[in-house]
Amino acid sequence: MSYYALLGALEQGLVYGIMSLGVYITFRVLDFPDLSVDGTFPLGASIAAILITNNFNPYLASLFALLAGAFAGIITGVLNTKLKILNLLSGILVMIALYSVNIRIMGQPNTALLGYDTVFTPFENFFGLERFVIAPIFFVFVIVILVIFVVWFLHTDIGLSMRATGDNPKMVRAQGVNDKFMVILGLAFSNGLVALSGSFVAQSQGSADVNMGIGTIVAGLASVILGEAFLEGRSVFRAVVSVIIGSTIYRLAIAVALSFKIGNFQLNPSDLNLITAFIVTFALISPNIKKFIRVRS
């Protein structure tokens, strides 16, 4: 694997790590399998793209992407808690609705960002470095800030209530917490992060595409599960850090798999789903393998 491919995989691991943090909040904290992320990820990209191509400040554009994602999350939450639609279905409804919305937002299925200022531009100009070096460093900073923020949030009074809601809604209601509100808030938070991730991906790869969200939930889950397999431990801090580690390992594993070559046989990008299935399966059975090895030795 080349130096470029390694840096690229690291960058992807970090930027999709933001998305995985969002998936962690719904999937693990709230115990809510939220499929709307497949729609909110390109939503973030679309919003950022249309604003940036209209010469908006890219930071402001990313913030708007985050807010739009949060709003979509609120809709999923309202469908589930107020209108009593099954959680999986609420997410699917928002996901497919956003496909049309995203095309409306951009006015076309994809938007190129080449030549426009992005969140990296100030740093590129200041340090005089190429984007493929700047982007991973930029994302490291963003990730550190977000990890601290998420860990802090999950230890506040509201954060404790949110974690307890995913664990035992009966208990939180008895303690005076509106569990429905917690679900909506968690979905807003989660989808805000996912959309932010989408806006960053669009800016780093130079385009937004309405189909870029396909498989977001799978990648997010793969990262969460891989992270748990690599970093055991029950504390919130360890769990949140493990999501980022999982996301990075996932992208590295894919990069390694794609550079793999036996004779004339080589995996190509269309084999990605198969690779993902193998990686997730491996992560899911790894605790049993570990136990098996421990018992044997």
């Binding site: 949030f153 208990m171 939180v172 005076g176």
Partner: peptide, 24 residues
């Protein structure tokens, strides 16, 4: 809530009937 620590469970109970914010 089984996944929360004893002190976190008690902290939730200590806020019963009070406003919950973004304090630790």
């Amino acid at each position: 809530a089984g996944s929360l620590t004893i002190e976190e469970n008690l902290a939730i109970a200590l806020k019963r009937g009070k406003k919950r914010g973004l304090g630790l």
